[in-house]
Each structure stands twice: as C-alpha cells, then as structure tokens.
C-alpha cells in the first residue's frame, strides 16, 4: 500500500496542482479548447467514432470480414447485403473497413509507444548527463536520421516476417529520434531551472530528479508529439500494408484493401476510394486533436505533423 501511495503522491500532487505531471491549469486549458474550438471537437468526435468501431467491430460488422460470401467485386448496393460492395475476393467491404480500424489504431498507437519508450530513455539520459554521454547518444540519433524510415521498415519486416508485432516494432524504430530529441531539448532547458537546483540542493539523486522532477514536466510536449506521430504511423502502416509488407495480407487493414484492389481501381472505384477515405478521416481527426493539444499546452517545437 505504501508504495502505491507513494507513486500516487508523485503523480497526483495537489500541492503542485499536477495530475500525472500535467499542470491542472493545462488540463483546464484543454477543457477550454475542447469546449470552444470546433476543430478540436471534430477531432475528438472522429477519434471517438473510430475507436468505437475498433472496439466493437465484431458487433458492428454485418458480415465475417474473412468470409468470401459474395460475388467478387460486387458493386455497392448501399442497403442490405454488401452495402459498400466487396473486395476482389468477394469479402464484404463494410465489415473489412470496420475491422480495419483495429489494426490501424493498434499499429499507430503501438508503434509510437515503442519509439517513445526507447527515445525517451535516450533523451533523458543524454540531456541529463550531458557531455560525452550526450555527444555519443545524439550522434547515434543523428544516424537514425540518415535512414529512410519507410525503407528501413520494409527491411525489418523482410527480416522478421510479416505480422502485427513485427510491423509495430519496425515502424516504432522510426520514431525513436523524434522523442529522443524533444525530450533532450526539454531536459536541457529544465535542467537549469530552479526546481531542479532546489531538488539537488536537498540531496536528491540524479535518478530521483530525472523521474520525479524532469519527467513530469516533459509530459505536455510529449503528448503533443505522440498524437502527431500516431497520425504519421497510421499512414506508414497503411503504406506498408499497401506494399504488401504489413500485417498478414488476409488480415483486414485499410492499406492492404487498397493494395489488393490496386489493379482494379479503374473498374471498381470503391476499392480505391473507401479504404483511403477511412485512413484520411481518421488521421485527419487525430491531427486536429493534436493541434488542439498543441494550442492548449502552447507547445511550438513539435510542429510538422
């Protein structure tokens, strides 16, 4: 119990008016933005709907997304069976689109989590210790830069084989440098601030300062970064799936629907348009939400969605 209470006290510290390291006034501002900004509301609504689709796909989907129940390339009927047509194997498009939300969100959120965890550790260590450690780590990060991330993901998938987790890890590598850089920058700025000096002067160790003081302060830019990158990762996932290098081809994903239908787009427009539309609307919603977060937290640095 004692440990839990300690952890709780660290993150929900009413004296400092923080909840999980976000100052409550930031949460209030977020509330203000969400209450006033149409853009933000639209973003939240879209993300909410797509999340709902992903969570309740088995209930929402009218047909088995894997079942080849219909004539191949059935035109959309817009009512009843095959409402949005079928893919090139005669599988119900609507059901596959609904199931596609799962992979898209999962890969998007998961891949960025991989990048965030590794990147944050590197950034925290580099920024906090500075000097040679910083130099070596950041030069390493620089090299990440020179790798074209999509091509690297292609290679990694080729090595580890297709599959959900492999795609998540392969894409995640691409986001390490973004997180490392932003966290390091924040740490460098925060390191000089008074509360860090104060923490040092009362005898806290480096690790305690890093976890207890600096980390909570980096949460705001991190959240903004995270949202922006999830949008990017979803596009990257779609691209990989489109190239046939994503999650197994039979799994319904928006990108693979496009990839498999590529040869038919001129005859069967819905194959070319609908899955793409799903990607765009979802990513659009996430980007809007990210922008609202940025406005609320006043984070400028991480522009470049």
């Amino acid at each position: 119990m004692g440990i839990l209470a300690n952890v709780f006290a660290r993150f929900v510290d009413t004296d400092k008016a923080r909840v999980f390291g976000i100052r409550t006034d930031m949460l209030e501002r977020l509330g203000l933005v969400l209450g006033r900004d149409r853009k933000a509301q639209l973003g939240v609504a879209i993300v909410g709907i797509v999340g709902f689709m992903a969570a309740f796909a088995p209930i929402l989907a009218p047909h088995d997304p894997m079942g080849q129940d219909f004539p191949v390339l059935l035109e959309p009927q817009f009512v009843g069976a095959g409402a949005l047509g079928t893919d090139s194997y005669g599988r119900d498009m609507l059901s596959r689109l609904i199931y596609g939300a799962r992979i898209s969100l999962l890969v998007g959120i998961g891949a960025v989590a991989v990048g965030a965890i590794i990147g944050m550790v590197i950034g925290l260590v580099a920024g906090f210790f500075g000097g040679l450690v910083d130099d070596v780590l950041m030069r390493m990060i620089d090299i990440f830069w020179a790798f074209p991330y999509l091509l690297v993901a292609i290679m990694l998938v080729a090595i580890f084989g297709q599959g959900l987790w492999n795609v998540i890890i392969a894409l995640g590598f691409a986001y390490i440098d973004d997180f490392a850089r932003i966290i390091r920058g924040e740490v460098l700025a925060l390191r000089e601030e008074e509360f860090t000096l104060a923490a040092r002067s009362i005898g806290l160790t480096s690790r305690e300062i890093m976890v207890g003081e600096i980390f909570p302060n980096t949460i705001a830019p991190l959240l903004v970064m995270y949202t922006v990158l999830v949008a990017r990762a979803m596009i990257a996932e779609a691209t990989l799936s489109f190239l046939g290098l994503g999650v197994r081809p039979s799994t319904p994903t928006w990108g693979s629907l496009l990839g498999q239908g590529r040869g038919f787009v001129t005859e069967a427009w819905w194959i070319g348009i609908l899955p793409g539309l799903m990607i765009v609307i979802t990513v659009f919603g996430i980007n809007l939400f990210g922008d609202a977060l940025r406005d609320a937290f006043d984070v400028r640095r991480s522009e470049g969605g």
């Binding site: 596009i235 691209t239 990607i279 765009v280 990513v283």
Partner: peptide, 8 residues
C-alpha cells in the same frame, strides 16, 4: 494533405 497517404 497531411492526413493523406501519398499513394492514395
């Protein structure tokens, strides 16, 4: 534009 994959 930001939300559209180039291939789409």
């Amino acid at each position: 534009g930001i939300s559209m994959p180039g291939f789409w």
